[in-house]
Amino acid sequence: MIIDEYKKPKTIEEAYSILTTKENSQIIGGGAYMRLSKKHIGTAVDLSNLKLDFITETENYIEIGATTTLRELEINDITNKYFNGIISKSIKNIVGVQLRNIATVGGSIAGKFGFSDLIAALSVLDSKVILYKTGAVNLLDFINKKHNDVIEKIIITKNNLNADFQSIRNTKTDYAILNVAVSKHNNNFYKIAVGARPGIAICADKAESFLKTVDFSKENAEKAGLIASEEIKFTSNFRASAEYRQELCKTLVSRAILNINC
């Protein structure tokens, strides 16, 4: 990779203005993924001086600054207190402590990686991406649209939902072959996200609707897994075949539902 100029702006306005005015400019969060790219970057905009590394709790929300590292997120008391620790559970197998000390929340969201474990987990929480110019955007909308903007923070509604994360990996620290996050709001209101298909996490709407209509039981959890595995598209790559991913989806979704209810 070639970078002509490396800037560390002091304010988010400045970061945004470089991003939108300079040719071939690109944001650097942790830089761990950027560094793998073969791009020629005109101006690199490093956000580390913006004081966006924070995790705070307000009355209704958990707020996570964009340059918070995955390691901070993993061990933070606030994130661990809610949602059965799903956030921590989802990221704790990413490579190693040293990488998680570099990789940021902003980069993990903005990267929109198909394999992303964090996106899968956040997809079943009530999460919003706060962009500097655009303002608040639902996570799903953020993923589906292109934004030439700076992620400032992520906010997650502090509802009392239960959640679980499941994944299957080759070695323990490898990318997931499939990852699944499930949350349960009240009674029968579930959210189910399936990622690393290898495409990015998407929701299993039909399985969610099915669960709304039935009471919890092991059979219904399995049925929901089956429905999810049939409605979601999987593809094959060198890590696994589509058929295997489909099988895993069945099991992991039903397991997550069971875990939440037990």
Binding site: N170, T171, K172, T173, D174, Y175, F238
Partner: peptide
């Protein structure tokens, strides 16, 4: 080494 995985100490 992202795509070719050797065992880690957790395996």
């Amino acid at each position: 080494l992202m795509n070719y995985k050797i065992p880690t100490r957790e395996d």
